[in-house]
């Protein structure tokens, strides 16, 4: 009897230990949020917009970003199309939950830097299928996360995590992310509209190892409701090259590339 009791206690300990090891949705998304991608990045971004008839438009941007811990600064210079050449967009995104981004735009025709409202995060970026919010790092505390299941996706075991926003007026009713176990890389994400219908699917097409960091260099956002796609490609990616702080200033916005 004593032996049986000991065995039962051991089994209970194992069960408790296993339960404690199981990671929850919030922890998974926190790891995705904290996945290291270098302190600074320089890259040439190409966006190809493809409509339902297969017609393509191209956008070309040179971008610089740097992580300062409490704030991530990004500056983008538009190269093409010709009518927006040398337009610059700067975004300062804060890790502090609830603190709005600071955003400015420089329009060469107006020769003026204009602070813009960060409340327009649901706007689509340059007519693409990515909203400004999709391009930023949404803090995990802004959503309730639940692990739906674990499954294999494109040969890798993934956690499938449902994230429901805490605020009522967010642009999506929920998102579902496929996160590769151990590397914490998001491989796929589904976005659902306010009615709960599937709106967009983000699929990572290519990941490159650059300076020991996993960098997504090709991804596709497909709006399944309008059958419009945006392919986003990064070229000439440089990590931790020591981008000077002066790159994220009024001076650089006006000077351009």
């Amino acid at each position: 009897m004593k032996r049986i009791t000991i065995i039962l206690l051991l089994m209970l300990n194992v069960i408790i230990a296993l339960t404690a090891m199981e990671i929850n949705g919030r922890e998974i998304m926190q790891k995705v949020y904290e996945r290291p991608t270098g302190n600074d990045q320089t890259a040439e971004l190409t966006m190809i917009l493809i409509n339902s008839r297969g017609n393509e438009r191209e956008r070309l941007i040179q971008q610089y970003q740097k992580d300062y811990g409490d704030v991530e600064k990004k500056i983008m210079f538009f190269i093409a199309p010709a009518d927006v050449h040398n337009t610059a967009f700067m975004n300062w995104s804060y890790t502090e939950a609830g603190k709005d981004d600071d955003q400015w735009i420089y329009l060469p025709a107006l020769k003026r830097i204009k602070r813009i409202s960060s409340d327009s995060k649901s706007d689509y970026f340059m007519g693409s299928d990515f909203t400004y919010d999709d391009l930023g790092d949404r803090h995990p505390v802004q959503d309730e996360h639940t692990v739906l299941r674990e499954e294999e996706f494109e040969g890798e075991m993934c956690y499938v995590v449902e994230s429901i926003p805490k605020e009522n007026d967010y642009i999506y009713s929920k998102t579902i992310s496929w996160v590769v176990q151990d590397s914490w890389l998001g491989k796929k994400k589904e976005f659902y509209d306010e009615d709960g219908d599937l709106l967009k699917i983000l699929t990572v097409k290519q990941v490159e190892k650059i300076k020991d960091f996993d960098i997504i260099t090709n991804s596709e956002m497909h709006n399944v409701q309008s059958d419009h796609k945006t392919i986003m490609m990064l070229k000439d990616v440089k990590l931790d090259s020591g981008i000077d702080d002066s790159n994220f200033t009024e001076r650089m916005m006006k000077r351009g590339l």
């Binding site: 709005d100 600071d102 204009k114 602070r115 813009i116 409202s117 960060s118 409340d119």
Partner: peptide
């Protein structure tokens, strides 16, 4: 001056 206030400027 310009300042962001509750999502507006």
């Amino acid at each position: 001056f310009s300042k962001a206030i509750s999502g507006a400027v």
